[in-house]
């Protein structure tokens, strides 16, 4: 474990917590009377969260952590896997099933056909992988899928008029975690002999590059202290 990877994992955990906080805020609005302006905004406007991206992430974790009970790495590793699995599936459940939260989900805008991402990633994983075993192919699939999982969310943000802070922070943290992982891979390459994982490195690089324009608009909105807006 190195500082880059720990920072990456904590950033990833933060992104999940921000999303859970956002869902909690929407839920707690229901109990209050309407005049609370925040509630009005949250319940009237779409939450800006893409269910498609959440479902893809749940699939990423499900296919990546198949070895959670067979290969014990460390207590930290197991606990983090359980957190990511539990949170991603419960977020999908909330947006799909919860009577209040699902009202804030705008399915007319979240139209990305994520099936078109799953199939090519699966085919690619069958062709390019480190070892042709069931677990390894699904693990590779999860890497390819995670690289593109943010696409429905980024497209939804382009369509969302006013992106609220929590959603913007969620996407930023999600992009930043993989950028930190790239530093971790560089560090491990130079400190651990024979540490070479091209598939992981290239997928991680592609994933981070997909956030490039979001990072640009995110930082310029911070600098100019204006609302985050992605060009359509």
């Amino acid at each position: 474990m190195n500082i880059f990877r720990l920072a990456g994992d904590m950033t990833h955990l933060m992104s999940v917590l921000v999303l859970l906080l956002k869902i909690h805020t929407i839920k707690s609005c229901a109990g209050k009377s309407y005049p609370c302006s925040l509630c009005f905004i949250l319940l009237e406007s779409s939450s800006g969260i893409s269910l498609k991206t959440q479902e893809l992430y749940a699939l990423v974790f499900a296919t990546r952590y198949l070895d959670i009970f067979t290969d014990f790495i460390s207590v930290y590793n197991t606990i983090m896997k359980l957190i990511f699995l539990g949170s991603s599936f419960s977020i999908v459940w909330y947006i799909r099933r919860h009577k209040i939260v699902r009202r804030s989900y705008d399915k007319d805008q979240d139209t990305f056909r994520h099936f078109f991402l799953v199939l090519p990633c699966l085919l690619l994983a069958l062709i390019i992988n480190e070892k042709f075993t069931f677990k390894e192919v699904l693990w590779t699939f999860s890497l390819y899928l995670e690289a593109v999982a943010i696409l429905p969310q980024l497209i939804l943000l382009q369509r969302t008029r006013n992106i609220d802070n929590l959603t913007g922070q969620y996407v930023f943290l999600l992009g930043a975690y993989r950028a930190l992982y790239i530093l971790n891979w560089i560090y491990r390459y130079f400190t651990e002999p024979h540490y070479v994982h091209w598939i992981t490195w290239i997928s991680g690089l592609v994933q981070t590059l997909l956030y490039a324009d979001f990072f640009y608009y995110y930082f310029s909105s911070l600098k100019n202290n204006v609302k985050l807006k992605l060009p359509a």
Partner: peptide, 10 residues
């Protein structure tokens, strides 16, 4: 048998 490449990262 080469050690299964246990993936130690999340």
């Amino acid at each position: 048998k080469e050690k299964e490449t246990a993936h130690d990262e999340l």
